[in-house]
Every structure is written in structure tokens, then in C-alpha cells.
């Protein structure tokens, strides 16, 4: 499966200033019974979004019309816990293309990159600044430029560089996936197997 190319994104953002958001919150286990990758967006943050009677919880940000856009800005240590890739699928399926936080859990980060969802790791102070700007004006537009590895608020001239593995950057810019690469080196893998025994 190829992934969508990611080069530059300009969008408003949805703020979720909570730390340690685990993948059980992103997509609760009872929604993992599907056998395809589609449709998880509907249940993104299900138990934060709806109460037990199925009514929307007014105080949850995804139920607040003020906020929208394809960037999710979240508190520190986002995506911890279960390795379920369904979390990345749900965020992507909902319409987000990038998640900004000051710290990501490893497996979540890998899973996101494998699905064309860009995790942008910023400093704590930059993150605090982003929350302030977005909450001050929900129409604040944020630009994420993968080519230059820069995240900025154009209207305010606030910006920061972010890191990404050069290989992963290539993959995202071009829509390549790891599996294509691995399949292209099958001869090398078989040679490795022969040399081991």
C-alpha cells in the first residue's frame, strides 16, 4: 500500500493539552475487531467524545465547532501504551495529517510514519506557545514544511525546526513505504540467511 505524499501543510489546528494520551484513549480496544484499515476515524477518542448514553460530551475539543483542521496539537508523551496501529489509522481517517507534541511514544511514531501521518516533535516551550495561540484564536493557521523541517505560525512569525530521520523524510516526501524497500532487497535478505547457518 502506498502512502499519501507529505510535503507541506497549512491548516488550522485542534488543541488537546493533555499529557500521556495513550492509544487506548485514541481508539478503545472494543473497536479493534475490524479486519480492514478503514473506518476507525468514527471512533477516534470515542470515550472522551461521547458519554455512556452516546451523547456528545460538550467539554471535549472534537465536539467544539470552534476548532477544526488537519493538525492535532497534543500534550507531552502522545501515543503511549498499546502498539495498535489502529490509533494512527483512526487519527488519519478522521482527517488529521500531522500531530504536534513535545514527546511521542516510539511505536506510535513509527506507526504514524508508516501511514503518512507526520509526528512533529517540538520543544515544551514551543508547544506551550502553540496552545496559547490556538486557544487565543482558533483560526490560527499553522504551517508544517517537511522539506525544510520547519513548523511556523506565519501570521506571528513564530517558528521552530523539527527533527526527522532522513530516510523517513524521503519516504514521506515521495509516498514510499518500508515494505517496498524491503521487497527490493530480497536477494540480500536471502544471502544473509545463507551466511548465518
Amino acid at each position: 500500500m502506498a502512502i499519501e505524499k507529505f510535503q507541506k501543510l497549512l491548516s488550522t489546528a485542534v488543541p488537546l493539552p493533555i499529557e500521556n494520551v495513550d492509544t487506548d484513549q485514541i481508539i478503545p480496544a472494543r473497536f479493534l475487531k475490524a479486519t480492514t484499515r478503514e473506518g476507525f476515524g468514527e471512533n477516534l477518542f470515542r470515550d472522551w467524545k461521547f458519554d455512556k448514553a452516546g451523547n456528545p460530551r460538550e467539554d471535549f475539543v472534537l465536539n467544539n465547532d470552534k476548532y477544526h483542521g488537519s493538525i492535532l496539537v497534543a500534550g507531552k508523551n502522545f501515543g503511549s501504551g498499546s502498539s495498535r496501529e489502529h490509533a494512527a489509522w483512526a487519527i488519519y481517517d478522521y482527517g488529521f495529517r500531522a500531530v504536534v507534541s513535545s514527546f511521542f511514544a516510539d511505536i506510535f511514531k513509527n506507526n504514524s510514519l508508516n501511514n503518512g501521518l507526520l509526528p512533529v516533535q517540538v520543544t515544551d516551550s514551543f508547544l506551550a506557545g502553540l496552545f496559547k495561540e490556538i486557544e487565543g484564536d482558533p483560526n490560527t493557521r499553522i504551517e508544517i514544511n517537511l522539506i525544510e523541517q520547519v513548523i511556523r505560525i506565519p501570521a506571528k512569525d513564530i517558528s521552530e525546526k523539527f527533527d526527522i530521520n532522513p530516510y523517513k523524510k524521503e519516504c514521506l516526501l515521495n509516498g514510499y513505504t518500508d515494505i517496498d524497500y524491503l521487497i527490493s532487497i530480497m536477494d540480500r535478505i536471502e544471502e544473509f540467511e545463507r551466511n548465518r547457518t
Partner: peptide, 18 residues
């Protein structure tokens, strides 16, 4: 270590991951 489903596919297909 734990991996995501895309990586499960890689291991099934090539016995390797990146």
C-alpha cells in the same frame, strides 16, 4: 519488541523490518 500492523506485514513478506 512490539510492532505495528504495517511492520507485521513486512515481517510476513520479508522476515525483516526497518
Amino acid at each position: 519488541f512490539g510492532i505495528g500492523t504495517s511492520e507485521v506485514e513486512m515481517v510476513l513478506a520479508t522476515q525483516c523490518i526497518l
